[in-house]
Write a protein that binds this DNA or RNA. Structure first.
Lengths: 230, 230
DNA sequence: TCAAAAGTGTTCTCCCTACACCCATGG
DNA sequence: CCATGGGTGTAGGGAGAACACTTTTGA
């Protein structure tokens, strides 16, 4: 059996991609975590991740991780930071390029090795393996920045949703509460929401109107960016 | 002579840091480029960069590059993206973690191997080596984002400056023009500028008041972040 | 006396904020 | 009939955008 057959004149670190997968369950923002089955940090929760193949751009590696855990192939994905502290992995030096992904929880199928995968509300995440606590903080910070520049609901919500759902999503990402009426006004002003003739009964109290995104305008905004005040 | 003595069970990419160093010359935003003396891309211009030492976090590597080229040790520095396209370096697979730095051009001493270093206005940058054209675009985009959330003048301007200089800086970063009066109002409203009793003659026409940053408030804003509309 | 740049205020409009009332339903 | 949540409108304030005049100097 051959060992250590890849040799270089200078030391090279290992490179991995980690994928912070966010989903929205209707009331809070969640992240998908994997329980580690091996040392180090066996039994701890961590983000899906793995070594980058040599012919693979980092984003492709992150998409591979995403697919393996969720079955999804075309979710929104975005690189946000590379982690390089020399001893962040006790086995060898590992550089991790971290991505965040936005998915609809309902679209997620238990992936290949996802028996040990679980959604956690971002406020109830346990202590994570490696420096993943830091990675989560950074991912959240990036998401909170993004929300001011691009629309994000479409990646996280079902096709049809109520204004209240959209508001709860924004509130759970930013960790603040909005006035119901002002939020609706602001969102409708953006001119990316199509009111539908359908309604649902989100509570037993009263029916609520459903909306969907005007994808044309949504994507234009996503391309062009905008400024959203909160 | 020993070769290829660092061996691994799986292939490892090389990891470098590149440093996009921005400076402001009073009229436009500049970047510091190095003319490559060796193949590949010999004779092309590129960002300062180099291989990451194995006991060195990426930011430290970027600071090392910055110091080697400018002599500066405490400039503002920020990671903005990792580049990983498999064939971006023809020699071997190289992952580059890219940083941007903001410096005062007047503080820059020609560094160790900086005989072949030159400042270029961002609008007059030639075709660069590797994928550095892309890296520059991304660095500029990041800088343009940052400017909306944190004050940045202090890293790029001299200690004392006129309102017009500050405005020109903002204009040259964002590529747009502002109304002189509205810009001054907005900046003074931020309450980070101290008017001085000194004046200069930025043009032969008329003297102009000098300002400096109130560093306490400036750093508080930098910490806390804010929202700046343009 | 003219061109160029600095210093200074006002007005208008729009958007954000705070806030209140009505309606429909299930218990 | 009451608690809960959805739907809608308004009044006030603040900030940004547009905009003009005066002053100083060198040419």
């Amino acid at each position: 059996m051959e060992e250590n057959k890849y040799c270089y004149r200078y030391p090279h670190p290992a490179v991995t991609t980690d994928c912070v997968i966010f989903g929205f369950d209707g009331s809070s923002l969640n992240v998908l975590l994997i329980e580690r089955g091996i040392e180090p940090y066996k039994g701890h929760w961590a983000f899906p991740g793995g070594f980058l193949n040599m012919d693979e751009p980092a984003e492709e590696g992150a998409r591979r991780e995403l697919r393996e855990e969720t079955g999804l192939t075309d979710a929104y994905i975005e690189q946000f930071h590379a982690y390089s502290t020399p001893d962040r992995d006790p086995r060898e030096r590992v550089i991790t390029i971290a991505y965040l992904a936005l998915v609809r929880i309902c679209d997620v199928k238990g992936g290949d090795d996802a028996a040990d995968a679980r959604w956690f509300p971002v406020n109830e995440v346990p202590r994570l393996a490696f420096d993943h606590d830091l990675i989560l903080r950074d991912a959240l910070a990036r998401l909170r920045e993004r929300i001011h520049f691009r629309p994000i609901g479409h990646d996280l919500l079902p096709d049809k949703f109520t204004l209240r759902q959209l508001q709860t999503l924004y509130e759970s990402i930013l960790g603040i509460r909005f006035d119901r009426r002002n939020f609706a006004k602001k969102m409708l002003h953006l001119d990316v929401l199509n009111p539908l003739d359908e309604t649902v009964w989100p509570t037993p109290k009263r029916e609520a109107r459903l909306y969907c995104f005007n994808l044309e305008k949504y994507n234009e905004l996503k391309q062009r960016g905008f400024r959203l005040e909160f």
